[in-house]
């Protein structure tokens, strides 16, 4: 059976309880093509049972709720199914299973969790702030996973005097630091007025990027491997069709 939930943690935990002993369960919150012959069940959130399930899971593996959070944030098509099979395995074994990498369910879930963590790390590097006329910083980006609030603390720690907005344009939401507190809010579009110097610094940065490259050592495959092309549209140094491609 296909168990469709609302994408929240409570919804997922409810689905986990209902689908627990179904050997061919598919757990999802996305509009997916239903396999032939499968029936669909809409999962209705049950916060009380979900809370209990959460406590049990925590008692089996204190780290698994962190893992669940990462899995639900993943942009992979089957992330919720991976989370289901992984957490069900923990519940069956009643202990942590994350080191049993020879198990395909564990391996797939661990890889998925790692990918989310890796993107957080990458975004610490690839976020590009623009300085607005008020001095606040604005960074639009489009991550694979839902992580805008997870990368915020890093920037808050190093730029405590600058209000900033991390705008996930794909999910139409933003993580905001207003100079004192932080919050997440829906944000479809932002009209930003740049500071007088902003374009000057951007152009110096492009000059630097061009000068620090060694043209005879062309390793575009390696560059793309480290810095995938889908991230480029928010990087000033790679926005305009660069001559090296």
């Amino acid at each position: 059976m296909v168990y469709v939930f609302d994408g929240t943690k409570i919804g997922f935990l409810t689905a986990l309880l209902i689908a627990f002993s179904d050997p061919v369960a598919i757990v999802t919150s996305k509009q997916t093509q239903i396999p032939l012959g499968m029936t669909v069940m809409q999962v209705h959130n049950d916060p009380v049972r979900a809370k209990k399930a959460e406590e049990r899971l925590f008692s089996f593996d204190p780290d698994c709720l962190f893992d669940l959070d990462r899995l639900l944030r993943s942009g992979m098509q089957n992330n919720e199914q991976l989370a289901f099979r992984y957490l069900r395995f923990i519940a069956q074994e009643k202990r942590p299973v994350s080191k049993r990498l020879a198990n395909p369910d564990v391996f797939a879930a661990v890889e998925c969790i790692k990918k989310v963590g890796l993107e957080i790390h990458k975004m610490h590097g690839f976020i590009r702030f623009m300085e607005t006329a008020s001095g606040a910083l604005y960074a639009p980006f489009s991550p694979d996973n839902d992580i805008c609030d997870l990368i915020l603390p890093h920037f808050r720690a190093r730029l405590p005097q600058f209000p900033f907005v991390l705008h996930d344009v794909k999910r139409k939401k933003a993580a905001v630091y207003d100079g004192t507190s932080t919050f997440v809010a829906p944000l479809a579009q932002a009209d930003v007025l740049l500071s007088a110097d902003e374009l000057g610094w951007q152009s110096l940065w492009k000059e630097y990027y061009g000068a620090v490259n060694i043209p005879s050592r062309k390793r575009l495959k390696q560059m793309r491997g480290y810095m995938p092309q889908r991230y480029w549209k928010f990087l000033p140094e790679r926005q305009e069709s660069p001559p090296d491609l």
Partner: peptide, 20 residues
């Protein structure tokens, strides 16, 4: 105060066409 802090793991901010 001011700006910046250390990042123990290190952090890459961009990659040039030479792969560095």
């Amino acid at each position: 105060g001011g700006m910046g802090n250390g990042y123990v793991a290190g952090c890459c901010h961009s990659f040039t066409p030479d792969g560095r």
